[in-house]
Design a protein around this nucleic acid. Structure first.
Ligand SMILES: [Zn+2]
Ligand SMILES: [Zn+2]
Ligand SMILES: [Zn+2]
Ligand SMILES: [Zn+2]
Lengths: 178, 178
DNA sequence: CCTTGACGTGTTACAGTATAACATACATAA
DNA sequence: TTATGTATGTTATACTGTAACACGTCAAGG
């Protein structure tokens, strides 16, 4: 989904940075980053008939405020402050919707949720979680998934869903604390 | 660690089945399977100085009763029935020890724990979880881990620990419920 | 011998995560 | 209109995990 962007270099016809895997770990124009993902999610929802209601959209906005994963109860606090319900199911249901639609991912290692940074694109989510700054990036996972599929196929196992998560240090935090 | 096994074919000098990844999904001599792993764990503990105390050993035995993952509270119930403490920390501490020693793995998708089926061998654990029969197998993961390392290295991320889990249908359950 | 310190176990109490079940509201369709 | 499906809100409860302290054992060092 091409879009205008003031910072584009001459001859650059799209904001390539928006889909870069390491963007989460680098300083970048995150307002643009988040707005772009939100717009794409809205388009996808409209196209598929999925109802991105106020609560659900608000939850996605909240997740998109940073590249960190948020616990359901943190999301809930924000929702309550915005006048929505303040009971756990309110947050969990909205999060479940977003996950089902592919607009968010569940990071099981953290008992938390993160906005999907490239909704619509089919991707076997693979997460790199920085233990120092808590940022979460979706890494390019095609080769990982292929290797996993091969291992499964070798023994006749049919994979339906995967959770691939790696904990470590992002490029920025590595240099600070070796 | 070679060992005697009555079922070995002539010319077979070790129980190769014990390390086969799909063993968890196939009918097999599980008593032998579990006893073998337990013996290996005991040897490793003795060699490293790690203290495989009664509670810890009992927890490993409990995990080894099947190829399924068990929740900490299920383990705890069993411990209590055996006369050990019946408070959560008793189970969690023993499980933590086993995980630290590489005698068990934590399956985050299930909030549960499973015995490691090849302790001592360095392995980046990758789990195949059957959603029908709940069996959990550790798959050969070297290629998966290599692909993940490559993806991480490409953006300068230093991986420390990984959780790679796949949910699906095992060979046996596939044929029953397509 | 006795002390000291490390470690393992047991307990209380609590924190954090998640869901079941029911009530209400609103949309759309028959 | 009435019915039906879906979304939201609420109560209550279940499930998962940890902090902190008390007690016992054992080995090292006085
Ligand atoms: Zn961003
Ligand atoms: Zn970082
Ligand atoms: Zn077995
Ligand atoms: Zn199965």
């Amino acid at each position: 989904m091409p879009h205008d962007h003031a910072d584009l270099h001459p001859g650059q016809d799209d904001c390539l940075g928006c889909t870069s895997p390491d963007l989460a770990f680098a300083r970048h124009d995150h307002d643009h980053c988040a707005a772009d993902v939100l717009a794409r999610a809205e388009q996808l929802a409209a196209a598929s008939g999925a109802r991105l209601t106020p609560v659900r959209k608000r939850v996605l906005e909240i997740l998109l405020e940073s590249h960190k994963a948020m616990g359901a109860y943190d999301v809930l606090q924000r929702l309550a402050a915005d006048g929505f319900g303040n009971q756990p199911p309110v947050a969990y249901r909205a999060l479940e919707f977003l996950v089902d639609q592919g607009f968010a991912h569940r990071i099981r290692r953290l008992n938390a949720f993160a906005a999907c940074m490239h909704p619509g694109e089919t991707h076997a989510p693979t997460f790199l979680i920085c233990k120092a700054c808590d940022a979460v990036a979706e890494a390019p996972a095609a080769p990982v998934r292929a290797a996993l599929d091969a291992a499964a196929q070798a023994i006749g196992f049919a994979i339906e869903r995967t959770n691939i998560e790696a904990l470590g240090l992002c490029p920025a935090c590595r240099t600070v604390a070796p």
